[in-house]
Amino acid sequence: MLKRIVLVLDASTAGKIARTYTFDLAKQYKAEVLGVAVLDTPWLTAPQPEPLGGSAFKIQADEAIVRSTQSHIDELLAEFKTVCKQEAVSFQALEIEGFPANEIEMASYQGDLIVLGKTTDFHFELDGHSDSTVKHIAHDNPRPLIVVPAIPEKTNTIVVAYDGEIQSARALHMFLLLNLGKGKHLHIVNVNDDPQEGKELISLALKLCESHGVKAEGKILKKSHSTGESLLEFSDKIKAEMIVLGSFGHTLIRDVFFGSCSKMMLKKSRVPLFIHH
């Protein structure tokens, strides 16, 4: 059951989209939202080449940057609190100092689910937007996470990438335990050139969905191109509102979450990705 959502607060456009998505999710499941903002002082004050005698200037410059960033964070947290009150969403706000990925992972121990945009900006445009924090958290996966690229159309249709490995089985199980499958129609997708093998693997997932009272059907896709591309094409075809992934399986996710395919999934998916392993 979903009780508390850990929402990553940052200055990116993707972060704003993730906030809207989180508020809708919180209202739907009557969950509390823990908004987490991180003051990234390790990056803001990182050593840089400087001329002889320039250390005093560097200290002053660092202090000014930290003060400016702190001001932005204060505004971000104030806006978060205001919107939560307007949306009648139960909330807590937390500011932490340190490396964003590490601090967010530690904060996530207080919640059931992490939600963040597909890119983040903790430096308020000092260095542009980045997906490094997203990749770090997806790799460590201290809690299930939803990476939000855009607000999806509500079709109640979910694609579950299922290769029969333990990671994809865990992802589906956690998705069901959090009750995110309630009222949804799940498509359990296996990319396989052997239809019989695919059918046998999918049957296990269908039985699990049945035990949770969730409507589901199986789909076997032939390996015409990469697994990631196949998943995205099928997701677009049936107008899925989310894709469920186990992030480090032996076949499916090795293809999806390493190298160019990883970047393609995070960049090109038009719907949120639920990631757990």
Rank of each mutant, 00 (worst) to 15 (best):
E105V: 01
E97H: 11
H212I: 10
L126W: 02
Q167M: 10
K16M: 10
I114H: 05
S247N: 12
L186F: 15
K16I: 13
K30L: 11
H185N: 12
L177Y: 02
D236Q: 13
T69E: 14
P100A: 04
L204I: 10
V147G: 00
V189A: 01
I253E: 08
Q28R: 14
L7F: 15
E197H: 11
P100R: 01
K27E: 06
K135L: 07
G35V: 10
L273S: 02
Q70N: 07
Q167R: 09
L186K: 05
T251R: 14
I243Y: 01
I96G: 10
F91N: 04
L232V: 08
D194V: 07
F248E: 03
L204V: 10
T155N: 04
M106P: 08
F80S: 00
K263E: 07
N179I: 12
E50S: 14
V159M: 01
V256L: 10
E103P: 10
Y109D: 08
F175S: 02
L221N: 00
L201C: 05
I188M: 05
H185Q: 14
K3G: 12
Q86P: 08
C84F: 06
E197K: 15
G246L: 05
R270H: 15
I238L: 11
H212A: 12
G228L: 11
T82H: 14
K27T: 02
G111S: 08
L34V: 05
F248D: 00
V36S: 05
F175V: 04
I137P: 09
L116N: 01
E165I: 03
V36H: 06
F80R: 00
T120A: 13
E241G: 04
S68N: 10
E50L: 14
K27W: 10
T119N: 11
P272L: 12
H173P: 00
M242Q: 01
V191S: 04
H123A: 13
L76C: 03
E103L: 13
T13Y: 13
I275D: 03
A37S: 00
L221T: 01
D163L: 04
I59H: 12
V244R: 01
T119Y: 12
Y29W: 06
P51I: 14
V38P: 03
I104Q: 09
G218Q: 05
A93L: 12
I96Q: 13
G228K: 14
E32H: 15
H277I: 07
L44E: 02
L245D: 00
E217V: 03
